[in-house]
Design a protein around this nucleic acid. Structure first.
Lengths: 114, 114
DNA sequence: TTCTCATTTCGTTATTTGACGAAATATAAA
DNA sequence: TTTATATTTCGTCAAATAACGAAATGAGAA
């Protein structure tokens, strides 16, 4: 029960949904996500940890950076089923399209030394 | 976007999830739900209105009572897809099983005049 | 109509959440 | 090793949420 609530809470924030939709296209580090969402790094980090704890994403050290990516092999069956729905969600949303365009441009080597 | 957040927020509370699982078995009025969940009527009513606004349930006047039931024909495609998953959720949870047993016993004519 | 009672709305309160910046941590580069 | 920088953790604040009881609403019964 508590686990399900955690899963749905993770999906109950527009910034976290935007993150998931961006990760559909490519793994990203904290500061790249920060650059698109215009949030503080610490805020992005918190969102990512909630998504990770719910099982939606994985983190992986990559040099200076931590790359976050969708977790296609989530342990929890229901998380996997929800993730199967993700590609259908808000594809018509202007903000999501804009995020995806922005993420093609961001270059961690340029933007991450704030 | 906002609509999706509303949908997931509706699912982000254990009492609302318990309500949905009970409504799988049978329509219920506010005071029947109140009797199972041990919440104030006004609290149950609020939960129901959040579930209704998200599209998961419908209300129908029935004499003195308002019967709430699952909305099998939700307008929103994603709501329908989530509702298709509902029967798979927490069937192993003791609390859900207990709720369903309790709901078989509750009789609105006996319990609703508090 | 008036009364009764199921439900909803409103106002209040305690808790949770989402945001920030600062400090701590970890790791690559110098 | 020291420095730089990406990330996380911590403390704080404002806003949102979930709970309650009281008051308002609405519909059947008397």
């Amino acid at each position: 029960m508590r686990n399900y609530v955690k899963i749905f809470k993770a999906l109950s924030d527009s910034n976290r949904l935007r993150i998931l939709k961006m990760l559909e296209d490519s793994p990203m580090c904290v500061c790249e996500i920060r650059a698109v969402l215009n949030l503080a790094n610490s805020t992005v980090s918190k969102h990512l940890s909630l998504l990770r704890e719910a099982g939606f994403i994985l983190d992986e050290k990559n040099g200076k950076w931590v790359d976050y990516k969708l977790n296609d092999k989530a342990e929890n069956l229901q998380v996997r089923k929800l993730m199967k729905l993700l590609p259908e969600w808000f594809n018509d949303e202007a903000r999501i399209k804009a995020d995806k365009r922005k993420l093609e441009i961001v270059d961690r080597n340029k933007i991450c030394n704030i």
